[in-house]
């Protein structure tokens, strides 16, 4: 029962992200989506991931989105959303579309159901102990022993993000448009040269 409630909340918030009229509404819907997802993680005994989901996604990434929206809409008249390719559907049609999508995927997934593994009941997992499935202790032990290499590589990825952003956005003073006059002059001279070539041959 809990699953169906969460599933409806997840799909509804995802639809809201995609269809929202303003990016800021999308961010709010995305926040709801991420928090609901964290609840799903808890129900699947992925406790550490649930916490990370809240801290990193809701706490860091979404705030970053909000900052950029604020930055881009300040100093200009209004934050316009350009013409979308998203057709303007009435709410019932949208609802029907999503239901159809769910039905198609659901039937497809159930055709696959016999080849999927069965979920281990919670009673067979060592719940409650420090070494339980999904606990921080198990996760940490794995991250620093058998999965050490991927963990080390994330350091490089974060470094690339930091340096990349600094290099991209650090030097705002020189954000000038290209020298149109000079470019135009070069193009004109070229055109003339080509024309002369054509006449000569």
């Amino acid at each position: 029962m809990l699953f169906w409630f969460l599933a409806v909340a997840l799909i509804a918030s995802a639809v809201a992200v995609v269809t929202a009229a303003k990016p800021v509404y999308s961010v709010i819907a995305l926040l709801a989506h991420f928090v609901t997802l964290a609840v799903v993680y808890v129900s699947l005994s992925a406790e550490f991931l649930a916490v990370t989901q809240i801290l990193v996604y809701s706490g860091a990434i979404l705030i970053l989105f909000l900052f950029v929206i604020a930055l881009l809409s300040s100093g200009v008249d209004s934050f316009e959303v350009g013409p979308d390719r998203l057709p303007k559907l009435p709410m019932p049609a949208l609802f029907a579309l999503v239901i159809t999508l769910v039905a198609i995927v659901f039937s497809a997934a159930h055709a696959f159901a016999h080849v999927l593994p069965v979920i281990t009941p919670t009673s067979q997992l060592a719940v409650g102990s420090a070494a339980a499935f999904g606990s921080v202790a198990t996760f940490g032990a794995m991250l620093f022993t058998s999965q050490l290499l991927p963990f080390e590589i994330t350091a490089l990825i974060l470094m690339v993000a930091v340096i990349g952003v600094v290099v991209l956005a650090g030097d705002h003073a020189t954000l000038t448009p290209p020298d149109h006059e000079r470019l135009r002059a070069i193009r004109r001279r070229e055109r003339e040269a080509i024309l002369r070539e054509g006449e000569a041959s």
């Binding site: 991927p150 590589i153 990825i157 690339v160 340096i163 990349g164 952003v165 290099v167």
Partner: peptide
Amino acid sequence: LGLELLSLALYA
């Protein structure tokens, strides 16, 4: 991770 390391650096 290798793919994303490559891609992220290339975006920048």
